[in-house]
């Protein structure tokens, strides 16, 4: 493990909303090229952790990306550093077309030719989006919106992608499709931090996983180990 390149490191992260502590001093890291998953029930602090990394909420502790402390960097600059987030509930702009949604994510990029290639890449991965380029985001189905959300994250060309429950509200067949795309994206060089309630799916694709319980990490291991762990099984995999 020691020869791995740590891309994202979280040390003693604490996030509070008023008097409520959502995340209580967790530490973990994500190495370059990995898929790491944070699993846990509702309210375990998974989304808060992602929001902290993206700079959307204030926190105590240290989050560093490629060795650089992110604390004083604003959310929009963090995207430019290479961290793209697919937010909970997809966060599609329903009043913008599919193409406009994708285009917005290139705000901080200047490389016109590369951007053009990335549109092509997104449309190759999700042909459905190509067919619906001119359609408003709000008229897409849940699965298509999730594809668009992932496509948007690709357009900002992060070296790291954070995903907040991409399986939420999707039919099993679509969940499988999204997860196989995530694996492809990972294989082409994007490091992934995946937050999921669907522990089974997440652990199957993940290199490593962390189990969050009410703001603290209770178990950790490789995806395979956690899938086989009786405690994890009982709590998150339906026995």
């Amino acid at each position: 493990m020691s020869n791995n390149n740590i891309l994202l490191s979280i040390q003693d992260l604490t996030i509070s909303y008023g008097n409520i502590k959502a995340v209580k001093g967790i530490s973990f890291e994500v190495n370059e090229g990995e898929i790491v998953t944070l699993i846990g029930a509702n309210g375990a602090g998974k989304s808060s952790t992602l929001r902290g990394i993206s700079g959307l909420v204030s926190y105590r502790g240290v989050i560093s990306f490629r060795g650089q402390d992110l604390k004083s960097i604003s959310a929009d600059k963090i995207v430019a550093k290479g961290i793209a987030q697919v937010p909970e509930g997809r966060g599609i702009f329903g009043n913008l077309t599919v193409l406009e949604n994708l285009k917005l994510a290139t705000w901080s990029r200047k490389d016109k030719q590369e951007i053009r290639k990335d549109y092509q890449r997104v449309f190759d991965i999700f042909p459905r989006l190509s067919e619906r380029q001119g359609q408003l985001g709000g008229t897409l189905s849940g699965g298509e919106q999730q594809m668009l959300a992932v496509g948007r994250a690709l357009m900002s060309r992060g070296t790291m992608m954070l995903l907040d429950e991409p399986s939420m509200g999707l039919a099993p067949v679509l969940v499988r499709e999204i997860f196989s795309v995530l694996k492809e994206i990972n294989q082409s060089g994007t490091t992934i931090l995946l937050v999921e309630q669907n522990a089974n799916m997440a652990l199957q694709v993940a290199s490593r996983g962390y189990v969050l319980e009410t703001g603290v990490i209770s178990h950790t291991g490789t995806g395979h180990e956690l899938l086989g762990d009786p405690r994890v099984k009982e709590a998150y995999l339906g026995g």
């Binding site: 700079g55 604003s74 959310a75 995207v79 702009f93």
Partner: peptide
């Protein structure tokens, strides 16, 4: 237009 739809998501686009 994106802000008018959902202000919270806009910074995640690097904006």
């Amino acid at each position: 237009r994106a802000i008018s739809w959902d202000k919270a998501i806009v910074p995640l686009m690097g904006i």
